[in-house]
Design a protein around this nucleic acid. Structure first.
Lengths: 140, 140
DNA sequence: ACTTAATATGCAACTATGTTGCGTTTGCAA
DNA sequence: TTGCAAACGCAACATAGTTGCATATTAAGT
């Protein structure tokens, strides 16, 4: 369980507690994976001014410290989520309402698939990207 | 087996045989999945002048007719490959040499994973994106 | 509190991928 | 061979993301 406050998490990662990082983490913890433009407009709503350059740089250090993870659903832009939300998981994107759902896979099966690939080829797999697309319950 | 010539494939899809589509398909059939900038420079090498707008538009119609498929390895740009090359397959991207390999998965296992997700949630899965990253034999 | 060094920020300019509008050209079929 | 739809080139635009540099803020040491 992760009961640390945002301030504590940033401190634990050995980072300086800046307005930017604090606000960004706060937003990410409240949202499904969002893009930088969305973070930007979310900040504007909260009447907080933060430059896009600063956001990209803050995200970059947060990613390095594993407080944030980057995902790419093939939309031509990246999305970010607080990695503290949950552990390893994947995403389902509804082709109709564009909602992003977190899903948990049977990791045993994934691992079987990877072992299979590694044995057939001479690869050593370091990570994967697995996303699903379709219709969610609300739209089906 | 797909023994049709490029001209025949285009005709079979009910498309006009334009220089652009012909050249693009020719390049895609010879290459691993490549991006538009790469197609552009490949054309330049062959002393063929074709505008990037035309490339994007040609690709778009070729994709609609299923002669080309679009893939996204999270690099901030799309890649394209001739779908005639092989049937359903996935990709492995070497983190060291950036080489892209075609891999074939145990589709039974993939289908098991999907059924699992569909039963736990109220999703109907229409497609997926599954890519692997790591070190290839040459780099390991 | 005061200084300092490291990190964070703002701004402007820039790069890259991809798109749109529009006028012109080309392939192909009647 | 002529007419129409599809293809094309060009310029302008849109959007995501990056870089350089000057200024400001934070946290640690005095």
């Amino acid at each position: 369980m992760n009961k640390l406050s945002i301030e504590e998490k940033i401190a634990a990662a050995g980072l300086k507690l800046s307005q930017g990082k604090k606000e960004i983490l706060e937003i990410l913890e409240k949202n499904a994976p969002i893009s930088v433009p969305e973070i930007l407009s979310s900040l504007k709503t909260k009447k907080i001014s933060l430059n896009k350059t600063s956001i990209y740089r803050a995200l970059s250090t947060l990613i390095k410290k594993k407080l944030v993870s980057e995902i790419d659903l093939g939309e031509g832009k990246k999305r970010y989520e607080a990695s503290s939300k949950e552990d390893h998981h994947h995403h389902f994107l509804c082709n109709t309402c564009q909602h992003i759902y977190h899903i948990r896979l049977d990791e045993m099966l994934v691992s079987k698939i990877e072992k299979n690939i590694e044995s057939k080829n001479k690869f050593s797999i370091e990570n994967h990207k697995i996303e699903f697309y379709g219709k969610c319950g609300d739209c089906g």
